[in-house]
Design a protein around this nucleic acid. Structure first.
Lengths: 124, 124, 124, 124
DNA sequence: GTGGTCTAGACCACC
DNA sequence: GTGGTCTAGACCACG
């Protein structure tokens, strides 16, 4: 579990956890049926409240990415590889569409956007 | 003042106002020294609390985009054209960099991103 | 808000609230755009923790039955009448199918079930 | 002992066992004085903890459906055939009455319920 | 040991 | 006033 928490981020802690675990599942760093740390263990690792780690797991379960069984623990749910690949695109598309909308309102051309994208991708 | 407010948006109302006025200034729809509606007038137009419109103007003033003269009202502050153009890019860059970072974490290539960008720009 | 809580029920408190509010929405006792009590108010009414009432509202929002806007409160979301009628059936069907399955395992005939149903409906 | 365990079910494992053995006794698939597998044997068969199989037998004993003789094992207790038949009905009635109560709260008529019942019984 | 529920009390942002 | 987040600490059921 490589998770990094920033207390000063405006993004809620549980969201940070959800996002990072989600990414690890979607990119195949966490495989199906793999056990996740218990909510108490994760809370201890990240120095957060048990409630916060629990909340993150609840959200992931709602998304169908993990399954948690009482008294046993939580596990990555088996996923079709293509489904995962699709999800990866959806996540970025959703964010990208916001940027594009705003860019259009600011009359920024596709060429300008493409140039910025290339530049940022290389340096970031 | 063409401003559209969505009460159900997760974006705070004052933020919606700030963003829209900022865009209009940056794109040249609102020119230097042009008078803005009074906070009371704006609140009435948008059916919101005076506190909220006041907060939006405060934010815009902090960004140096408008100036408020006690007893007179608020005005768009004169801006160098190049400065405005620069700001336009900065706003989008800031958003785009987040997307790029996330995309890299999800191992999405520059080519894939460019393709998504083209597609979204055309259809959106 | 006519909600009755039983502390001795095995059904979690937040589930009891969800179920009762859901029923009131689905049966049209609560109409679209109607404001619900604030989570704090509801907690006070029912003598429960704010967290518990909040959790109930979260679940209802996830089901799309209410919308809650920060700083404003929670409201019944407008729903198509037919959709509501459909949901009513779905809820009961889901429960009924469990009973039917179990009845079949116990070799209880359809006639016997129908008789029990009639009897229970009249007396209950 | 035809028992199927689902680890992912929300129904506790010991409950699944109790329910299935109970059904087999009530429907006459397990007859009076018939020996049941030892708790250790059952635990081995089902790949569960001995504690869990023990708990299931305890519950069944509490219900008077089996008797456990120290050092000998557990046996189906002899039951009057009419008693069994009665129990069969009680189990379903208890479940059905919940559905009926909920249906009434949702203003679903007896006719509608009967129709759903017929439909579900045939297809399920 | 595990998760599930509930509690009381705090701080923040928004309106 | 509203909801959103986070905390610490408790009790229960399951295995």
């Amino acid at each position: 579990m490589d998770i990094i928490i920033s207390n000063s981020s405006p993004e809620p802690i549980y969201e940070q956890i959800v996002r990072q675990i989600r990414n690890q599942i979607i990119t195949g760093q966490l495989l199906g049926d793999e056990p996740l740390p218990s909510i108490r263990n994760l809370a201890w690792q990240l120095q957060i409240s048990v409630i916060t780690s629990k909340r993150a797991y609840e959200e992931l379960e709602r998304e169908g990415l993990i399954v948690t069984v009482g008294g046993k623990g939580s596990f990555v749910s088996s996923q079709n590889k293509d489904t995962l690949r699709e999800k990866r695109y959806e996540i970025i598309k959703e964010k990208l569409v916001c940027v594009v909308k705003e860019a259009k309102l600011l009359s920024i051309s596709l060429q300008e956007l493409e140039e910025m994208l290339k530049h940022l991708y290389k340096e970031a």
